[in-house]
Amino acid sequence: MEFLRPATWQEALAAKAEHPTAVPIAGGTDVMVEINFDHRRPDHLLDLNRIAELEEWETGEDTVRLGASVPYSRIMAGLRTELPGLALASHTVASPQIRNRGGVGGNLGTASPAGDAHPALLAGGGAVEAESVRGSRLIPIDDFYTGVKRNALAPDELIRAVHLKKATGPQQFSKVGTRNAMVIAVCAFGIALHPDTRTVRTGIGSAAPTPIRAKAAEEFLAAAMDEAGLWDSGKPVPPAVAKQFADLVSGAANPIDDVRGTATYRRHALGVMARRTLGWTWQQYRDHQGSKSCA
């Protein structure tokens, strides 16, 4: 196994172009596990740890450009206002040591349905900045996950950053595991309210071959809230609406039975998490509306 250690981003892109099967490694929290288990033995490992700009973020007018290697612990500390859903999800990643090493680029590169960042990325909305010696492009997050542990990257591309929409409303993340830390999610759910567009987006983890959105649930909820004028009135979401939303989230999943949980349990838990996180975010929205009208 060759270990490539480019000093700059341009060198990294050149190395990936030369060795398209090279496996990028940053925090190593997924890759090292796979190598240890002998699940993969790539000809080349491409170490991105010398490339400082991958560990930086820039906050623009409407978006955050989050470097692929910004560790979860820094997302938790520094981006909870701009990216509250991702910050909450980051809290649930593994252990403090791993949160100091791992970043969103690794989650995206591995594209495991159990990656903790995915539901928050799908719910918040954004795009993956992929780059190669041929140039740079933005892949909408909705188009990024293409299959079990597969993504839309071309063989010569590396993930430079993710462009994430700054939160315009409350976001929440919830995860069920078989223990309280260091655990692969049984299933996870993210929700983001987008008052600017009067829409709600969702993300489901560990309950389908890829991370997915519950689009029917989102559309139903947006229509129901619009119809009832809830965005303006700030009135509670009627229980029947919340239940229908939860049922549609459960229905969107396509889970399997495994040692961590049954498909039936996963569907059930997703419904619970959908209803709860909707309740939490809507309460936050109402509190915010209330404080605005008082001001």
């Binding site: 596990v33 309280n180 830390a181 040692v259």
Partner: peptide
Amino acid sequence: SHVDGRLGQVANHDLAEYHIAANAD
């Protein structure tokens, strides 16, 4: 320890999948 009857071995033979209580538990 989950035995996979087809293979005749413990499937979760590592500490990633054989869970012991973590500090947070």
